[in-house]
C-alpha cells in the first residue's frame, strides 16, 4: 500500500524499520564479542627497575630487562649514560641478541644487523631498533617510552 505522494510503500517502510532494528541488535551483540576476542593488553608506558641491578655495568656492556612481554636491552655508553632499546627486530618481530665481540645487535631469524646504537645496517630490517628513555630516580631506575614523561 502506498499513501498518496509517499516515496515508498508501507511494506518497504516497515521492512526498513525492522531491518534497521535487527541490524542494530546484531551490532550490540557482535561488538562485545569483538572486544573480547581482541584483548586490551598493550605494551607498558614505563617499567620500574632497581638501579642497583644496573649500576655496576661497565661501558659497552649490555643487559636485558623485561619490557612487558618483550625483551628490553640496556646498554651503558662510553660516557656512563644508559641507552635502552626494545630488543625486537623491526623486520618480523624476532628477539635480537647483542654480539659483544662485533659490537652489533643481530637478529637470527632473517639475519638482520644493527650497530651499537641500534641503527639498522644490514639485512632486511627496515627501521632502527626502538629506543626508550631512561632515568635514575633515587634507588629506582625507570625506562619509559619516549615522551611518556615522569609520573607525578
Amino acid at each position: 500500500m502506498r499513501i498518496d505522494n509517499a516515496y515508498f510503500t508501507r511494506r518497504k517502510f516497515l521492512n526498513s524499520i525492522l531491518g534497521g532494528w535487527l541490524g542494530t541488535l546484531a551490532v550490540t551483540f557482535v561488538s562485545p564479542i569483538v572486544k573480547f576476542v581482541w584483548p586490551p593488553y598493550k605494551e607498558p608506558d614505563e617499567v620500574k627497575l632497581a638501579f642497583a641491578d644496573f649500576a655496576g655495568m661497565k661501558p659497552g656492556e649490555v643487559k636485558g630487562f623485561p619490557w612487558g612481554a618483550k625483551p628490553g636491552l640496556l646498554k651503558r655508553a662510553e660516557d656512563g649514560s644508559f641507552i635502552a632499546f626494545i630488543g625486537v627486530c623491526s623486520h618480523l618481530d624476532c628477539n635480537v641478541s647483542w654480539m659483544a665481540d662485533k659490537k652489533k645487535f643481530f637478529c637470527a631469524c632473517h639475519e638482520g644487523w644493527y650497530d651499537e646504537n641500534g641503527m639498522n645496517i644490514a639485512g632486511p630490517p627496515p627501521k632502527p631498533l626502538r629506543r626508550l628513555e631512561t632515568s635514575v630516580e633515587g634507588e629506582d631506575f625507570f625506562v619509559r617510552k619516549p615522551g611518556a614523561g615522569a609520573k607525578a
Binding site: 623485561p66 635480537v96 647483542w98 637470527a108
Partner: peptide, 10 residues
C-alpha cells in the same frame, strides 16, 4: 623464553 634472543637456525 619470551625474553631470550631468537636462536640461530630458526
Amino acid at each position: 623464553d619470551m625474553m631470550a634472543p631468537a636462536p640461530a637456525g630458526v
